[in-house]
Amino acid sequence: MSILVVDDSSVMRKIVIRTLRQAGYGDQTVVEAEDGMDGLEKAREHNPKVVLSDWNMPNMSGLEFCEALRAEGNEVPFGFVTSESSPEQLAAAIAAGAKFLLSKPFTSDELATELTGVL
């Protein structure tokens, strides 16, 4: 099983991966992507079991990435991890097909709770 982590910040990808380990997912293969476009290609290539994506990214935003996956018929569980969360943003995320939106910084327990619900 692989987990796709998408963020234009390499340090944030490392933090998400570290938190995945702390949440008990250290034995999973993690694939990284640096923006939505890269994420789309990696999703097609690796067929991940879950996607964790930033919201604001160059080339293709997280929202556009989620919408593009759904447009291709890819129903992979998708969660956003973002620093700016609002009710409107959560609504947009759900409408695009995401399962959850986590606010940075998040704990391993919070991540585990969300992943238990989708995996």
């Binding site: 910040s9 340090v11 620093s83 700016e84 606010s103 940075k104």
Partner: peptide, 13 residues
């Protein structure tokens, strides 16, 4: 500096 920008990004919250 890039890492500090992430700190400021989270400061948004």
């Amino acid at each position: 500096t890039d890492n500090y920008r992430e700190v400021m990004n989270v400061l948004t919250r």
